[in-house]
């Protein structure tokens, strides 16, 4: 059990490593990727500027450095499980960044990212609690919890990946969703997992500086999958599964709408009918094509066309709203547990 001084010291150390790692390494990554012509067109802007991609490696290096330091300091097995899960998700995303893979690849390959959590819990123990935190109480489901991990990890990874549609949205959204999750882990989980979750928040804050509108670099699948999967891993290890889902509702809704529309697992680029159209003044408007999939962005622009920056802010407002719902859920659970 960590005491107050250790908690503050370790927290400051892992936050600083992940934050400054991304902050100082990203400019060099931008220059390097640009020199190697690893760029993609930013389709929603007049000049269609070429933006370097992916930033996944720099985010992974910074988070891994922080998690390794935390593991050495605490020797907590959950920290190692979170690091390995995140690293596998990064590799899956990086393969998709360098080679165009079919739609089934990411959800199927992300099953591998759940393996370290399950294996380390079976052979070492204390990675997760084997009971599902259902806000009004806990359900002890040691056997059923294993398949649940194999469901949660690919879903959270792909959910953050699917919301990475406009400049700064994935990183900004993850910052907002992480705050209630961290609060829940601190109250209902363990301090070690809380410390392990800090690099996700601080790496995202530093990355947002470069990813916000107009983006200077894109995270790529490696960046979004590692952040989304890490979110799922810390929610599992921190006994905050349902709170994590509630904070993630706008992104969950986006994935749900898309899947319910196309009725199969497919990459967005493979869908011919686009959910939005780009107007002459470079605003996004809702498509009138009945075959076009429903997405969060299409619903946001259904009343009137909006600019890319404005849509991003609308998504952030929704994220703040669901973060408040997550805080309300934390309050309900606190009252139920400690009344």
């Amino acid at each position: 059990m960590l005491d107050g001084v250790n908690l503050i010291t370790y927290g400051a150390a892992v936050s600083a490593i992940s934050f400054f790692g991304v902050l100082f390494l990203t400019p060099a990554t931008i220059r390097s990727l640009t020199a190697k012509h690893k760029v993609v067109a930013d389709a929603h802007k007049p000049e269609k500027p070429q933006v370097p991609r992916p930033a996944g490696p720099v985010i992974m290096i910074s988070i891994a450095a922080a998690e390794i330091v935390l593991f050495i300091l605490t020797m907590n097995i959950a920290v190692l499980a979170i690091l390995l899960t995140t690293a596998i998700a990064f590799l899956v995303g990086y393969i998709d960044d360098i080679r165009v893979m079919p739609g089934w690849f990411k959800p199927v390959a992300l099953l591998a990212a759940a393996i370290p959590m399950v294996v380390l819990d079976i052979y070492v123990g204390e990675v997760y609690g084997e009971s599902l935190n259902l806000i009004f109480g806990r359900a002890y489901i040691p056997l059923l919890y294993i398949p649940l991990i194999f469901v949660i990890i690919p879903i959270t990874g792909n959910t953050i990946n699917s919301i990475d549609v406009l400049n700064g949205v994935a990183s900004g959204f993850l910052i907002i969703a992480s705050i209630p999750l961290l609060a829940s882990i601190a109250i209902f989980g363990s301090y070690e997992v809380f410390l392990a979750a800090l690099p996700m928040l601080f790496a995202s804050i530093a990355f947002y500086r470069y990813h916000k509108f107009p983006s200077r670099i894109f995270p790529g699948d490696s960046g979004t999958l590692l952040l989304g999967t890490m979110y799922g891993a810390v929610a599992i290890a921190g006994s905050s599964e349902i709170i994590g889902v509630i904070a993630l509702l706008p992104a969950v809704m986006n994935s749900f709408l898309f899947l319910a529309s196309v009725k199969r697992i497919v990459e967005h680029r493979e869908v011919k009918a686009r959910p939005t159209i780009l107007t002459d003044d470079f605003k996004l408007a809702a498509s009138t094509d009945s075959k076009a999939p429903a997405t969060l962005v299409r619903l946001i622009v259904v009343d009137r066309p909006l600019g890319e920056r404005e849509i991003g802010y609308q998504i952030f407002k929704l994220a703040i709203f669901t973060a408040l719902l997550a805080f309300a859920s934390i309050a309900i659970q606190y009252i139920v547990l400690f009344r």
Partner: peptide, 28 residues
Amino acid sequence: ALTILALFMTGMWVMILTVAAFLVIFVA
């Protein structure tokens, strides 16, 4: 559009809490 989306998400939240409460109170 944002207000309606927020209401939609509140509906999703209520449904999630209802399912969670049902599982704890009746199934456990």
